[in-house]
Design a protein around this nucleic acid. Structure first.
Lengths: 148, 148
DNA sequence: CCATTTTCCTACTATGTCAATAGGTATTAT
DNA sequence: ATAATACCTATTGACATAGTAGGAAAATGG
C-alpha cells in the first residue's frame, strides 16, 4: 500500500480528536496513544505537522492537548496527506531537459498523471466527517471497544 | 508520486518493445536504453522480472532480445505493476491481533482499502494497447523524435 | 512562586528500499 | 570460434521510514 504509517496515524489521530474533543476539551497525545495503541513519542512528531498545516490547534500545559481548528466536514483527506507526505499526491518530477523521448513524455501524460489525478480527485473530495459518519454507523459509537 | 522508476521503466520498456518488435524481430536492452535514455544495466535487472511474470519472452544470443508474449491489448497495467512492485496495489497489512482499536479498523475499511481499490480498479482496466493508441495519436508515430 | 503536565524541537538510530553500477556466466546466431 | 545477447549476484551511496531519547518552553493549578 502506498500510505505510510505517518499518514495513517495522522488520519487516525484527527478522527480520535474529533470524536473525543466534544464540549471543548482538548485531547492529549497520551490519550490518543493509549486508545489507539501507537507510540506517543511518534505522535508527538506527527501532530505538530498537522498543527503547522492549520488542521488542529494545540494547547500546552496541564489539561492541554489538541482540538480541530475547523469542523471535520471542512478537512479534506488531501489536506492531511499533504501535511504529512510531500510526495504521494504530487505529479512525477519531469525528466531533465532534453533527455526524455517522446514515448516517455506520453506515458507521463497518459498514464502517470492520470493515475495521480484519480488519487488526488478522491482525496480532495472526501472529508473526515464522512469517515466519521461511516465508522459511527459500523460501531454504533462504541469507539473504545477492542476488536480482534 | 507513488510510482518508482522501476515501474516507470518497466512500462516504458514494454511499450518500446511493442512498438519496435514488429515483423517478429526482438528488441534488445541496448536499443531500449539508447532510445529512452535510461541505464542499460538497470533495464537488464527489470526485464527479467517482466519475463518471469510471463509478459515478455527472451531470446539469448546474437540478434536476441525481447518480444511481448501476448498482444498489448491483453497486458493490463496491473500486470506490470505487480511484476515490479509488490506493495503498490496490495492492501495495508492488518495490524497485529488485538492491538487495533475499532477506529483503526474502520479507517482501514472505509478509507485505505477504498483508496487502494480505486487504484487497482484503474490498473486492472487499462491495457498497454490503450496507451499505445493514445500516444500514437499524439506523436503521429514519430517515436524516436526527441522532445525538449 | 512552584510543581506538574503538556506541547515542541532536535538529534540519533536501525532497518530497509531505491537506483543504479559492476563483473561475470550462460546461451545462441553467424 | 567469436561476438552479441540475456541473466545472475553482489555492492554501493543516498535517502526514507519508524521510531527512541532527552530535554526546553509554556501553561495550568495550587
Amino acid at each position: 500500500m502506498i500510505v505510510s504509517t505517518r499518514v495513517e496515524y495522522g488520519v487516525m489521530a484527527l478522527l480520535d480528536i474529533a470524536i473525543h474533543s466534544e464540549n471543548g476539551i482538548s485531547v492529549s497525545t497520551a490519550e490518543i496513544s493509549e486508545r489507539q495503541n501507537v507510540s506517543q513519542k511518534y505522535l508527538e512528531q506527527i501532530l505538530p505537522l498537522l498543527r503547522q498545516a492549520g488542521l488542529i490547534r494545540a494547547q500546552k500545559g496541564l489539561r492541554g492537548g489538541y482540538r480541530l481548528s475547523r469542523p471535520a466536514a471542512n478537512v479534506k483527506l488531501s489536506d492531511v496527506i499533504n501535511a504529512l507526505d510531500a510526495d504521494i499526491l504530487a505529479d512525477m518530477e519531469p525528466v531533465e531537459e532534453g533527455r526524455a523521448g517522446a514515448l516517455r513524455c506520453c506515458i507521463n501524460e497518459c498514464l502517470w498523471m492520470r493515475l495521480n489525478g484519480l488519487l488526488r480527485e478522491y482525496a480532495e473530495k472526501v472529508t473526515l466527517a464522512e469517515f466519521l459518519a461511516e465508522c459511527k454507523g459500523k460501531t454504533s459509537g462504541a469507539w473504545d471497544m477492542y476488536v480482534i
